[in-house]
Amino acid sequence: SRHTFEINGERWTVEGVSEELKEILRAAERASNDEAERLLRLALKLI
Rank of each mutant, 00 (worst) to 15 (best):
S1P: 12
S1T: 15
S1I: 14
S1H: 14
S1W: 10
S1C: 15
S1Q: 14
S1Y: 08
S1A: 12
S1F: 09
R2S: 14
R2F: 11
R2Q: 13
R2C: 15
R2N: 10
R2W: 13
H3A: 09
H3K: 04
H3Q: 11
H3S: 07
H3D: 13
T4G: 03
T4M: 07
T4F: 10
T4S: 11
T4L: 06
T4R: 04
F5M: 02
F5N: 01
F5P: 00
F5H: 02
F5V: 05
E6S: 03
E6I: 15
E6D: 08
E6K: 04
E6R: 04
E6F: 15
I7W: 04
I7Y: 04
I7C: 11
I7K: 01
I7N: 01
I7Q: 01
N8W: 06
N8A: 07
N8K: 05
N8F: 09
G9D: 03
G9M: 03
G9L: 03
G9S: 02
G9R: 01
G9T: 02
E10W: 09
E10I: 15
E10A: 08
E10R: 11
E10H: 11
E10F: 11
E10Y: 09
E10T: 14
E10Q: 14
R11V: 15
R11T: 15
R11L: 15
R11Q: 13
R11W: 13
R11I: 15
R11S: 13
W12E: 00
W12F: 13
W12A: 00
W12L: 06
W12M: 04
W12P: 00
W12H: 04
T13P: 02
T13V: 14
T13G: 02
T13K: 03
T13Y: 10
T13A: 05
V14A: 05
V14I: 13
V14H: 02
V14E: 01
V14L: 10
E15C: 15
E15F: 13
E15G: 05
E15Y: 15
E15V: 14
E15K: 05
E15A: 08
E15L: 10
G16N: 15
G16T: 09
G16L: 09
G16H: 13
V17F: 07
V17N: 05
V17T: 06
V17S: 05
V17L: 10
V17K: 03
S18K: 03
S18C: 15
S18L: 04
S18M: 04
E19C: 09
E19I: 07
E19N: 09
E19L: 06
E19P: 09
E19R: 04
E20P: 06
E20T: 09
E20Y: 13
E20S: 08
E20R: 07
E20D: 10
L21S: 03
L21Y: 03
L21P: 01
L21D: 00
L21T: 12
L21M: 09
L21Q: 03
L21K: 00
L21I: 15
L21C: 14
K22N: 08
K22Y: 15
K22W: 14
K22I: 15
K22P: 00
K22T: 12
E23K: 09
E23W: 10
E23G: 10
E23V: 10
E23Y: 09
I24A: 03
I24C: 03
I24H: 02
I24E: 00
I24D: 00
I24Y: 05
I24N: 00
L25A: 01
L25T: 00
L25C: 03
L25N: 00
R26W: 09
R26F: 12
R26K: 11
R26I: 10
R26Q: 11
R26M: 13
R26S: 12
R26Y: 11
R26E: 11
A27Y: 06
A27P: 00
A27I: 07
A27L: 12
A27F: 06
A27Q: 13
A27C: 10
A28K: 01
A28F: 07
A28D: 00
A28H: 02
A28Q: 02
A28R: 02
A28P: 00
A28N: 01
E29Q: 08
E29P: 01
R30V: 12
R30K: 13
R30P: 02
R30H: 10
R30F: 11
R30C: 11
R30A: 12
R30I: 10
A31R: 02
A31M: 05
A31E: 05
A31P: 01
A31F: 03
S32H: 10
S32W: 06
S32P: 15
S32D: 14
S32C: 08
S32E: 12
S32I: 07
S32G: 12
S32K: 08
N33G: 15
N33S: 15
N33D: 11
N33M: 13
N33R: 15
N33I: 12
D34L: 11
D34K: 11
D34V: 12
D34T: 13
D34E: 14
E35F: 06
E35D: 08
E35R: 04
E35I: 08
E35A: 06
A36K: 12
A36D: 01
A36C: 05
A36H: 03
A36S: 07
A36V: 06
A36W: 06
A36E: 03
A36I: 06
A36N: 03
E37H: 10
E37D: 11
E37F: 12
E37S: 10
R38E: 08
R38A: 10
R38H: 07
R38L: 08
R38F: 09
R38Y: 11
L39V: 02
L39P: 00
L39E: 00
L39D: 00
L39H: 01
L39Q: 01
L40E: 00
L40I: 07
L40Q: 01
L40N: 01
R41H: 09
R41M: 10
R41G: 05
R41L: 13
L42S: 03
L42D: 03
L42A: 04
L42Y: 11
L42T: 04
L42E: 05
L42V: 05
L42N: 03
A43Q: 00
A43G: 02
A43S: 02
A43M: 05
A43W: 05
A43D: 00
A43H: 02
A43F: 15
A43Y: 10
L44P: 00
L44W: 06
L44K: 05
K45P: 03
K45N: 10
K45S: 14
K45D: 09
K45W: 13
K45Q: 13
K45M: 13
L46M: 14
L46G: 04
L46F: 08
L46N: 03
L46S: 04
L46I: 14
L46R: 05
L46T: 05
L46Y: 10
L46H: 06
L46D: 02
L46V: 07
I47P: 01
I47Y: 07
I47R: 02
I47N: 02
I47W: 07
I47K: 02
